[in-house]
Simulated assay, not measured.
Amino acid sequence: MADQDSERGLRARTFGTVAEEYARLRPAPCGAAVDWLVPEGCGRVLDLAAGAGTLTAMLGERAGEVVAVEPDDRMRATLADRCPDATVLNGTAEELPLPDGQLDAVVVASAWHWFDPERAVPEIARVLRPGGRLSVVWNTLDITVPWVAEWYAGLRPDPAAPREAPGPAASREAPDPAASREAPDPAASREAPDPAVPREAPDRRLASRGARLREDLRAAGPLFEDPEENAVTCTRRTTPADAAALLGTYSRVIMLPPEDRRRLLAKAETTLRARLSLPADEEFDLPFRSLCWRATRTATPAQVGRG
Score class of each variant (00 low, 15 high):
Met1His: 03
Asp3Phe: 02
Asp3Asn: 04
Ser6Met: 04
Ser6His: 10
Arg8Leu: 02
Leu10Gly: 08
Leu10His: 05
Arg13His: 01
Thr14Gln: 05
Gly16Pro: 05
Thr17Asp: 15
Glu21Ile: 00
Leu25Ser: 11
Cys30Phe: 05
Asp35Thr: 07
Gly41Lys: 12
Arg44Cys: 14
Thr54Phe: 05
Glu61Ala: 02
Glu65Lys: 13
Glu65Thr: 06
Asp73Tyr: 05
Arg76Trp: 01
Ala86Lys: 11
Thr87Asn: 08
Val88Phe: 06
Asn90Arg: 01
Ala93Tyr: 15
Pro97Lys: 00
Leu98Cys: 08
Pro99Gly: 15
Leu103Ile: 06
Asp104Trp: 07
Val108His: 13
His113Tyr: 12
Asp116Trp: 15
Ala125Cys: 06
Ala125Leu: 07
Val127Leu: 07
Val137Phe: 04
Thr144Asn: 09
Glu150Asp: 04
Gly154Phe: 00
Ala161Lys: 00
Arg163Gln: 03
Ala165Tyr: 01
Pro166Tyr: 08
Pro166Ile: 02
Ala170Asp: 14
Ser171Val: 04
Glu182Ile: 03
Ala183His: 14
Pro184Gln: 11
Ala188Met: 04
Glu191Ser: 08
Ala192Glu: 07
Pro193Asp: 00
Val197Lys: 01
Glu200His: 04
Asp203Asn: 10
Asp203Gln: 12
Ala207Phe: 13
Gly210Ile: 14
Ala211Ser: 07
Asp216Trp: 15
Leu217Phe: 13
Ala219Leu: 01
Glu228Lys: 09
Glu229Trp: 11
Ala231Pro: 06
Ala231His: 11
Thr238Asn: 12
Thr249Arg: 10
Arg252Gly: 00
Pro258Trp: 01
Ala268Tyr: 03
Thr271Pro: 01
Leu272Val: 11
Leu272Trp: 07
Arg273Leu: 04
Ala274Phe: 09
Leu276Val: 15
Ala280Thr: 06
Asp281Phe: 03
Ser290Lys: 14
Trp293Pro: 11
Arg294Ile: 12
Ala295Arg: 14
Gln303Ala: 10
Gly305Tyr: 12
Gly307Gln: 15
